[in-house]
Simulated scan of single mutants.
Amino acid sequence: RFEGGWIPWFTDNRLYIIGWVRPAGRDLVWGLELELSTLLSRLIPDFSLNFPEGHGREAIYVLKDGTGRILHQSAGDVLDPDRVPDLSVSLSPQLPHWQVAVYFTGGGAGHATGRGFLIISGLLVALVLAALLIGGFLLFRESERNRRDARRKTTFVANVSHELKTPLTSIRMYAELLMEGRAASEEKRKNYLRVIVDESRRLARLVNNLLDFSRLEQGRKKYRLERFCLSDFLGEFIDAHRMPIEKEGLSLSLRLPEESAHILFDRDVLEQVLLNLVDNAVKYAAGGGELALVLQRATLAWQLDVMDRGPGIPAGDRPRIFEKFYRGNDSLTADHPGSGLGLSIARRLMRDMGGDLEYEARAGGGSCFKIVISDPEKPEKGLE
């Protein structure tokens, strides 16, 4: 898996383009810089070979940039840049002050030479125009990408601020009620404490997502492998989170295979991925009334399906739900602020561990997220 792109800019009458590519999960970056004026000069053939005897050999063809510097000449000794050419064609307005010029070294300017010069100059103008159009398109595309990223990051900061503020407000309010002795009964006091614990967990998940996002972006995320029983882990997870999930109106179920499922994995990573998926189900699919976890054997791995009966994800959003900062544009996400990082981080964590996270629409309505859990024989890079 690779990521890459093009970064173009125009300076000092020159158009530069840098192409870069980086393997996913590695700090190594490969790059290629193109300076289009040099590239154009390399594309100019030795014009003197293209003309009849007695004409082409007596002419030297030159490409000059906006400062009058000779970028390329077809043959002969180095010319004086200040010498006035015998014939010239301007490349304006595509490249202001650039020109293609011809200098005769003897015998005069034959008709065939002049006609050939005009033809070749016209072809070169077309080549320059094509290069500028390509460069302009790359500049426009890069500008649009930067604008979209800036807008996403602004929305991300606003959403994260809201998500941090909401649980903090609840924690403070119920803590003050307890401190002032306003819990009239033991049952009410326990309810207040339960809200504080639930909101603290929610806050911890958000902070963990932000920390993991930072570590993953910087390549500093470390994993701790341990061998444990996946069936027991899922049973403990269900017991720990059943009450807050069912409180939101979802019935929680777990289906396990008969065979024992022992894996070598990072327990904290698996719990975080599950919490992100369960939190999304509580946010967007509570109306469906069902949340099911199904573990089954897959090829050289275990597959854990997290399924709900909510409205599902619109077909137009499905290819992008694992992009960082991306949130769907429908009214469902508008009612539930979020950072747009949960699914992106979850997939990145699973792939770093040799597994994967996939989505498909559930038959009969709803969503199905497939957690593919590998059991590597030896740790990969970054594992401890």
Rank of each mutant, 00 (worst) to 15 (best):
246 E>T: 15
247 K>A: 10
247 K>M: 12
247 K>V: 04
248 E>L: 13
248 E>F: 02
249 G>R: 03
249 G>T: 09
249 G>C: 05
249 G>V: 06
250 L>M: 02
250 L>A: 03
251 S>H: 06
251 S>L: 13
251 S>Q: 11
252 L>I: 10
252 L>E: 02
253 S>T: 00
253 S>M: 00
254 L>E: 01
254 L>T: 07
254 L>R: 03
254 L>P: 03
255 R>E: 15
256 L>S: 11
256 L>E: 14
256 L>V: 09
257 P>K: 02
258 E>M: 08
258 E>D: 02
259 E>P: 02
259 E>I: 10
259 E>S: 02
260 S>V: 15
261 A>E: 04
261 A>C: 12
262 H>Q: 11
262 H>G: 10
265 F>C: 02
265 F>W: 14
265 F>Q: 10
266 D>G: 06
266 D>C: 05
267 R>D: 15
267 R>F: 00
267 R>K: 15
267 R>S: 13
267 R>P: 10
268 D>K: 12
268 D>P: 05
268 D>Y: 05
268 D>N: 11
269 V>A: 15
269 V>Q: 08
270 L>G: 05
270 L>I: 14
271 E>G: 12
271 E>T: 11
272 Q>L: 07
272 Q>M: 15
272 Q>T: 14
273 V>G: 00
274 L>G: 04
274 L>K: 10
275 L>M: 15
276 N>C: 05
276 N>T: 08
276 N>E: 01
276 N>V: 10
276 N>G: 00
276 N>Y: 01
276 N>K: 00
276 N>M: 00
277 L>Y: 14
277 L>A: 03
277 L>G: 07
277 L>T: 07
277 L>K: 10
277 L>C: 06
278 V>D: 12
278 V>I: 13
279 D>K: 05
279 D>T: 12
279 D>S: 12
279 D>P: 01
280 N>E: 08
281 A>I: 08
281 A>K: 08
281 A>Q: 14
281 A>C: 05
283 K>G: 03
283 K>D: 03
284 Y>P: 09
285 A>K: 08
286 A>T: 06
286 A>P: 07
287 G>P: 06
287 G>D: 06
289 G>T: 01
290 E>Q: 06
290 E>P: 05
290 E>C: 08
291 L>N: 11
291 L>H: 13
291 L>D: 09
292 A>W: 04
292 A>Y: 01
292 A>F: 06
292 A>G: 07
293 L>H: 12
293 L>N: 15
295 L>Q: 05
295 L>T: 06
295 L>K: 08
297 R>A: 15
297 R>C: 15
298 A>V: 02
298 A>R: 00
299 T>K: 05
299 T>P: 01
300 L>C: 01
300 L>Y: 06
300 L>Q: 14
301 A>I: 05
301 A>H: 05
301 A>L: 11
302 W>Q: 09
302 W>T: 02
302 W>S: 04
303 Q>V: 14
303 Q>M: 14
303 Q>W: 14
303 Q>A: 10
305 D>R: 09
305 D>S: 15
306 V>I: 14
306 V>N: 03
307 M>C: 09
307 M>L: 14
308 D>R: 09
308 D>Y: 09
309 R>P: 09
309 R>L: 11
309 R>D: 08
310 G>L: 00
310 G>Y: 07
311 P>Q: 14
311 P>S: 13
311 P>M: 06
